[in-house]
Structures are given as structure tokens and as C-alpha cells.
Amino acid sequence: MIELRNVSFIYSDDGPFETKALNDISLKIEDNGFYGLIGHTGSGKTTLVQLIAGLVKPSSGEILIDGVNIAEKKFKMRDMPQRIGLVFQYPEYQLFEETVFDDVAFGPRNMGCDEAEVRRRVTEALQTVGIKEKYYKASPFELSGGQKRRVAIAGTISMEPPVLILDEPAAGLDPHGRESILQKITKLQKDRKITVILVSHSMEDIARTAEKVIVLNKGKLEMLGTTREVFAKGERLSEMGLSIPEISRVVLGLRERGINIREDVLTVDEAAEEILKLAAEKGLIK
């Protein structure tokens, strides 16, 4: 479990540019959960995930990972109780090895796995993201954009972290690539029973995948609840400059017009069902 206690982070350029990226955040992230992290640009999402991954230390507060405080000055990344995998935005810009295989093997090799174990992990990770074996010996720079992205994500999956954080993994991909990456992440989360934190601007993606949603606003924790609870507060989200899933907007519009539809509808299928049910109740259809 990951627990944040009163975490603040200040970018101190000790000049005129001091800004508070995070302000007194306390939250708990349970094991095996699928979390969505949303917030406007500059709300502190990226800082938050970097803190959890132990890449930066907070200005104040505690970050407990399975009870160990990684925010302490003395704490070294190497002593992390369990690895936290972080996939950055546009991860394909971090590819550097000569072959796809070697690039994905970078993490496991750094962890000190023997070659047999490295081979198993790399093969599994590449299979998970759907990269065919014929590409293993190819240069990562010869691949298409979507393939590069998937190889880069495999580079983190191969470390088999119990917690996987992905910062906008689908950004800049075509709808098909988007769909396929999200599906693979969802499947991975279910199969391996890991914790996933998905940072995204797309409310549709979050609504479809996440079980719980964390909302950040101007460096503060605004909401943390189940996906239904959070998206039911459409008005509050709009005030923060966040959109809600399109279908939630339709439902909200219907309610405004006096149609008593359930407000925590998340997907188009669900909405269709609800609308049909209402219509049947009113005798509009049989």
C-alpha cells in the first residue's frame, strides 16, 4: 500500500520563480487497485507520480510504501521495498539500445537478473504489449510510433513492478493504438493483480478503465473516490476546467431537462440501458 501524509512539494529556484507544485496531500492507494489520476495542466499530477516513484523527494511530509518512508533524506532508491514502475509521458524518447530486446532488458539487467530470467521477463513483457518476435532484433528506431511506445512501456513492465504508474500512455496515438494500449494495461492489471495508476487527460479513458479516481486541482487533492462518485460531480469538475466523459454530459443534460436518469452512468452501454429502462417505464417502448 502507498500512503501519502501531508506531502508538499515546492520548486525552489530560490529566485523569483518559487512555486508550490503540491500542497499538503494525504491519500492512500490500496493494493491491486486501478486508479485514475486527473487534473488540469499544472495541477501537480506529474510531480505526484514522480514522488511516489521516489525520483524526487517532497519538501515536507511522508510517503510510506508498505510502511517504509521513502521521503526520508537518508533513503536510497535501491532500498525500495517494492519497485514502482513509472512510464513517463512519450516514453519512446527514452529508447537508446541497439535492439528492441536489449532496450526492454535494460531494467531487468539493472536489477541484477541473470540472463535466463532477463530473457523470460523481456519475452513476457513484449508479448504483453503485443510486439511480435520478429522485431526483437530490430532497432527500436526503425519501428512505427505506436510500436515504439509499446516497446518503451514493455521496458518498464519487464521489471515486473507491483505498482505501475503510466503518465498519459496513450497521448498522441491514433484511436486504434489508444484503445489497444489501454486494453493491454487493463488486462495486465487483472492478470498480474498489480496496482496501476493511470494519469490521463481523457476522461473517457479513465471512465472506462479506472476503479477509483484521484482528482488534483492546483496542487491540492480535490477528490478521491470511486469512478462513479467522482464523475457524478460533473459540475465541480467543470469548475476546475476538467471535462467529464461525453456520456456523463448527456446524462447531466437529460437530468437538467427533468428526466430522472441515474447520474453515475459511466459508459455508453450503461447509458443506453438506463435510457431504455426509463423509456419502458414511461410506456414509450415495449
Partner: peptide, 16 residues
């Protein structure tokens, strides 16, 4: 900025 980001990303993959 980019250097900083890449360093962090590789650190997250266990680079030392």
C-alpha cells in the same frame, strides 16, 4: 529540461 526528464526516466528503470 529534457535531460532532467530522461535521467529520471532511466533512473526509474534502475539506471545508476
Amino acid at each position: 529540461d529534457e535531460t532532467d526528464k530522461i535521467m529520471k526516466a532511466q533512473k526509474a528503470r534502475g539506471a545508476d
